[in-house]
Design a protein around this nucleic acid. Structure first.
Lengths: 228, 228, 228, 228
DNA sequence: AATGAATGAGGGTTCATTCAT
DNA sequence: TATGAATGAACCCTCATTCAT
């Protein structure tokens, strides 16, 4: 039924070529000529669809970003508890980047540091996603899952920063090979850091002072020796 | 007594101008003309000191990076315990970036994602610093301060990623105003996430004095001395 | 009927301007700006047609060289005897240079000594022409027209060297005014130098009629058969 | 006795370096910096001795040219006959070029086609040499050694052109290996071409017609048909 | 709607030459 | 006298963008 219009298809081809080439060479070192050739159209045709090289750049992440975020948002309601949600969001982020290396490359190496990108529709979606993460952290705090004095903004920065760092590192230096395997350790670590202290960790010691002896003036607690 | 040679002084001026302008406009959008004008020299003079625009770019972080890292390394021996060291390193990183906003800008927005920068002398120093951080984490694991199953590389990524994220965010969006104030919460959070469980240190002791003896006025908990 | 495409026409104009200007100022002192202006196009347009200044330089002689050489080759089959051929070739060379002074200038003053020109398609044609000349000399030797011990390579060097010298001299010092008038004397001189001695053709015959018999009406001198 | 002044020695070093480098790379592609470095002096020092890069270029051939020409001139009076002189001059030319390959290279590839070189003191010497050659040819004509109708200018062009061609070819293409071995064949060839016809080549045939017949009115010499 | 062709605008880089020391 | 240091003046080349067809 949904016949793709040849025009939309052409547009798509241009975007794909642009993604590939921008990711490989960066915005400045990529040329329209190169992109149009890869897309099988003329330079001028690129300008039929996009007003400028930069507009083309900024259009690339739109679809994929929007799509993925929407998907994640759709899953959210089915998850219970801040921890599960947080884990799901992180998983979602990393999955996108792992499955779309060129997209990841473009975002991490070329768009994230572009001032004009901040004024972009695509970036708004990114901002939405970041907000979702923030809400989730706040929820955890409110429900008592996370420490009361947790700074949700800081936690978000830690999460996003870590993902970005891993992703950038992977694309520049080839490590880590598989980012997805890092998700659980990373989330575990952060959750450990912000989880509210659990009751069972508090030990009550009942001292029954039998006899008439004076209570000791000093109680020395000697931690068990750690075996090296 | 050590009069600064006019040549070194000129060189310094060029580097400073370049830092300012590269940070403001990025590598590609900055022109040698602009930089040379800002430094009060001619275009050709820039090329007397640096072989190319890119060499100029890569020379900028050298001094400041080297200097700061060395300083941090000098402090290390005086610190006891992985936690203190880790905190000091983070503090050191953030201090540089906080005190040299243009340098931070250049690193975070323009150099971090530059493939050629990886082959740079300045980057080697950066790598050294990252290694120092890693060693510190490993030390914490070995001495039992941190969990045995901690992945030191992941922890490092979390730390560096967070710093980078905060820094990038500050330079693109103006927040957080003061990164230094984030150091302690951030380190606390991460340490909480990787600290080995030490019941003795976290437990609440409820003394129910059921006898007739007088309650002691002071209970001193003396942790056993840690052997260095 | 065959309307010249405007593109080819533009290209032609650029080549003509380049010829003029390169001939006048030499390769290094000519600028693309100058050439493009003379051709009535922009600098960038020159680069639409030629990849570099040097490529433009090397393209210039292509057409004219190829064309003339081919023409000379076409005439060859109609000529009988090495001497006639040799004379025709020299005539052909000199005619080109006489009729295309700028081309001559470019070749003699700027291309002949250019190392990279040796790797050029145009130069291959030049080499072909030189080979044709060589073959012709060899033919003369084989057929006995020229001395057996003639070194064909030397003869060729003499011929080409002379033409080049005359041409260079004309363009630098204005003399000789008309090179074509030098062709016959030059060829005569060289032929005299390499022609096989043929006593029969040069001898004076003195007839002293001392008897009363009737003289024959025809005396046929039969040159001794030459052993191949 | 003749202590070389250190200044003259410096000057000499600069000239030698310049010869080497100009010959190797050509005038335009050689840099003063390169030359001064090779000479062990500073750029500025080069300008103490020579007013410009071009002046330096033109100064190079002076000494060697003057010296060689003078030497040849000194030998001339001891030679008898135009042929001997002509041969000596050619020999002299070729010897210089053979023994000073860099000098030959410079002259043939870089100076010979330089318009400004014509206004040079060094070129005057070259002109003198050419005049000497011309005189020698004229002498041969006057003394009857060479044909009366010989064009001395053309002969000179043939001689100089051949030498130049051989020399250029050697430096660009490596052939001929040894130019000196070409001197005799070349001179022989040219002399054969211009030598006045010798008496002994006229053969007298005495026909003794016995009988009473009338002498023939016409003797036709029919050269045998050449088989194609 | 698509494009072949053209170009304006601009930037990095080089180097002969100068001059204060 | 020698030079380290500085630079003015150019030039080649690139490419995003436009526009007539």
């Amino acid at each position: 039924m949904s016949k793709i219009s040849p025009k939309a298809e052409r547009r798509e081809r241009i975007i794909e070529s642009a993604l590939k080439i921008f990711a490989e060479k960066g915005f400045q070192d990529a040329t329209i000529s190169e992109i149009s050739k890869a897309a099988g159209v003329s330079d001028a045709t690129v300008y039929e669809y996009f007003n400028s090289k930069e507009e083309l750049l900024f259009t690339i992440p739109e679809d994929i970003t929007v799509e993925t975020i929407r998907e994640t948002e759709r899953v959210m309601p089915f998850l219970r508890g801040a921890e599960s949600k947080l884990r799901a969001i992180v998983q979602s982020y990393v999955t996108i980047y792992e499955q779309n290396p060129e997209y990841a490359n473009l975002i991490m190496l070329h768009l994230k540091t572009n001032r004009n990108f901040l004024r972009t529709r695509a970036f708004e979606v990114v901002r939405d996603a970041a907000r979702m993460l923030l809400e989730c952290i706040k929820e955890g705090i409110e429900t008592g899952t996370f420490r009361k004095n947790t700074d949700p903004y800081l936690v978000r920065s830690i999460i996003l920063g870590t993902i970005e760092h891993l992703c950038t590192r992977k694309h520049l230096q080839g490590q880590p090979e598989n980012m997805l395997s890092q998700v659980d350790p990373m989330v575990d670590l952060i959750l450990s850091g912000i989880r509210a202290p659990q009751e069972q960790q508090n030990i009550s010691i009942h001292l029954h002072m039998t006899g008439t002896a004076k209570a000791p003036e000093t109680i020395t607690i000697v931690p068990e020796e750690r075996k090296p």
